[in-house]
Amino acid sequence: MPHAAAVARAEELRRLHLDPAILVLVNVWDAASARTVASVPGCRAIATASWAIAAAHGFADGEAIGRERMLEVVGCVADAVDLPVSADLEGGYGETPEEVGETVARAIAAGAVGCNLEDGVSDGELLRDPHDAVARIAAARAAADEAGVPIVINARTDVYLRGADDPEAALLRGQAYARAGADCIFVPGVTDADTIKALAAGIDAPISVLARPGAPSVSELHELGVARVSFGPGPMGVALAALARTASDLLAGGVPADELSYRPPAA
């Protein structure tokens, strides 16, 4: 992507996080899903989902897919659409902040203008030391500055994904990540409306949450002050559930459904 186009898409993605309307990101995992979502009226940006990408390639989540293959998919998604693309880079695919910075630089080169960076370690049971997590976010910001593309860093804290109900920890980490250069703070796993409202009010950056069954609706999240909502592997789950139902119907001798004629929009 030409540098000017990358800068323009990054600036647009940043603006969308500050727009009065909540930014709804229906996560994708390949070029076909990206084109499908991008073609829907009202879609303003695209976000990948690491779990879904890994599953599509036969890997478990948690960076098992490796940096090379993940960035290859990110590039395919970015090439498939004309919208800003935010890439789920998990923990940054690196042991050190410098390696995380290299990952972000390469994601920018692949066409991403936003990224997720999480503070959970690969086993999902522990959180990184906050100083280490801050250093990794700062390295990501430095890499973006070096590239001259104002990438939107969506810093994820896994406080609630561990099963803890600790809004103070989420708030403190969110504040620290914002000071280190994050543009948005992602708190997946939190579903309580009062807690979400308190985090949105208490963190000096837009906040993002993961919507799932049992969580507030997108409209309710907007009213609570959430700037960005995504769905992780959920959209892939919907697609595969539909595939399973269709396969079941056809294997049982059913009539081919109209949806069998659907094709993703062309490039």
Rank of each mutant, 00 (worst) to 15 (best):
A4D: 14
A5Q: 15
A8W: 05
R14C: 05
H17L: 12
H17R: 07
L23P: 00
L23G: 02
L25Y: 03
N27H: 10
A31C: 11
S33K: 05
A34E: 04
V37M: 10
A38E: 01
G42R: 04
G42S: 08
C43K: 03
A45F: 08
T48P: 01
S50R: 05
W51R: 00
F59T: 02
D61K: 03
G62W: 02
A64N: 07
I65A: 07
I65N: 01
R69Q: 12
R69I: 08
M70H: 07
L71I: 06
L71Q: 01
V74K: 00
G75E: 07
D79G: 12
A80L: 11
L89M: 14
V100L: 13
G101R: 02
T103R: 01
R106E: 15
I108A: 01
A109P: 00
A109K: 05
G111N: 05
A112E: 08
D129P: 00
A133F: 15
V134N: 02
A135D: 09
A135M: 07
A138G: 09
R141D: 05
A144W: 01
G148C: 08
I151A: 04
V152W: 01
R156L: 11
R162Q: 12
A164F: 06
A164W: 13
D166A: 15
D166T: 09
A169C: 11
Q175I: 08
A180C: 14
I185N: 02
T191N: 12
A193S: 09
T195Q: 13
A201L: 13
I203Y: 08
I203F: 08
P216T: 12
L221T: 00
L221W: 04
L221H: 02
E223K: 11
V226R: 00
R228M: 12
R228I: 04
R228E: 09
V229F: 06
G232K: 06
G232R: 06
G237E: 12
A239Q: 10
A241K: 13
A241C: 10
A242H: 13
A244D: 14
T246M: 15
T246K: 08
A247F: 08
G254Y: 14
E259P: 01
E259N: 11
